[in-house]
Design a protein around this nucleic acid. Structure first.
Lengths: 237, 237
DNA sequence: AAGCATAACTTGTATATACAAGTTATGCAA
DNA sequence: TTGCATAACTTGTATATACAAGTTATGCTT
């Protein structure tokens, strides 16, 4: 048996997104749902917990599960959404330009950020993201070559995550991110359309696989006026 | 019985933070833990799930739960951490100056951001945050007065959340946040030490109670060089 | 010695039961 | 009519059991 609670989550999440369930309404009770999906109450509860975590519902003891209003502008930098998904909901025309894709051996900087041995084979990937013709995002990736043997420019232009998860069979699991504002460097201003700005929003992230190996380090620089980060956060008591 | 799994979570989280458990090590198995804490395996699993969500451990089917490396610099804007907690780990000297605390009736702008009726009583609160003597954060809060009857300057200087949760008995539950970079306005440059910057990082957040009522809207403006946002994010498949 | 099946672990999922705790509507009593 | 106890719902927590699925070490077979 594989993930009945996941299937229930998908069904209800889809219904909420399709606005079949209006915001403010109560979901059917856990007992009713367990009958409808022909499963136990605990399995339904697992699905509801996921929905709650992702901001679809709010559970109220004694009352039920309230459907929350969905963000009109779902701009997800949160979670681990990739640029491909991000771009889709953001802009009219999107273009990715691969500036560099090189196989290298880890120098000191790469060693540190990827926490690997010296001379470990890595991919160095530089990409320029154009929204509506303007080069406003500059991504620099470092990836463990061992995890991504046959990386090509075509893949880098499309989606690395799709390739890794579907072709290579890797499971990306979690990431640590940092968002800061920094002065633009000469190399940035050479390739980006700066639009008069001197600073850039820099998102640095370390991405880990299921087995906790750090396999990717990304530095993503955004022109300030094109940067937006939205988040749904639950209070941890 | 109240939250045995929470107690187990607290114990293990504390152990990891105190570095009694080293990063990379395996936790005792779920069966061992359930014996140690004299409880069932399911209860242990709930505690481990929380630990996993919050970035303390990574679960590996067939192997066990690996302790993850804790962030050396745990700068939490993520979640719903309040400024008071944030400041503690960030800077040497921290000072909050209350610029304004007024009881008002909702105008059109307040109506919209708080999603309330016209003329609903609200608190308008302006605070200036000084780190090491520099005024680098400017917070503007709007709160439903019905939820915070006796707000005072002293409370605003200390912690509103402590007051609301401990005195009034409210339960803050979740929030939607947005982070963008905007041009500083005249009112900003008047009160803040801009340090030559023209832009500000603006964090807007809508905070909700357990019963899903929106009760607070905050606009927090940060001088770019003093802003940092870190996050632990799990991939949702 | 090398390779492979297997046993003995680990976590993941699904089920059933019991009771606690919070909400709401019912209906009786004053 | 008003007020209050209560019954009938809701979700929250804890327990026990069973089996699936992944990992690792053991030991036998070749």
């Amino acid at each position: 048996m594989q993930r009945k609670f996941q299937a229930i989550y998908d069904v209800i999440a889809r219904e909420i997104q399709a606005a079949k369930m209006e915001a403010g309404q109560l979901l059917p009770s856990e007992n009713e749902l367990s009958e409808r999906f022909e499963t136990s109450r605990e399995t339904v509860r697992k699905a509801l917990q996921l929905l709650s975590q992702n901001g679809y519902i709010q559970k109220l003891q004694g009352k039920g599960s309230v459907v929350l209003e969905q963000n009109k502008l779902p701009l997800p930098v949160s979670g681990l959404t990739s640029f491909k998904e991000l771009a889709r909901s953001m802009s009219q025309t999107v273009e990715t330009q691969v500036l560099a894709l090189k196989h290298k051996l880890a120098d000191e900087y790469m060693q540190e950020v990827l926490q690997c041995e010296k001379d470990t084979p890595v991919w160095e990937l530089h990409r320029l993201r154009k929204l509506d013709g303007e080069a406003v995002i500059y991504d620099k990736d470092l990836l463990l070559a061992a995890c991504a043997p046959a990386l090509t420019e075509a893949i880098a232009r499309d989606s690395i995550y799709d390739y890794l998860e579907q072709e290579v069979g890797l499971s990306i699991s979690y990431a640590r991110k940092e968002v800061v504002v920094e002065e633009a460097e000469a190399t940035d201003t050479e390739v980006m359309d700066m639009g008069g700005y001197q600073q850039l929003v820099v998102v640095r992230s370390a991405v880990y696989l299921e087995d906790t190996t750090l396999f990717q380090f990304t530095e993503s620089k955004h022109r300030p006026d094109k940067f937006r980060f939205v988040e749904f956060a639950r209070r941890t008591k």
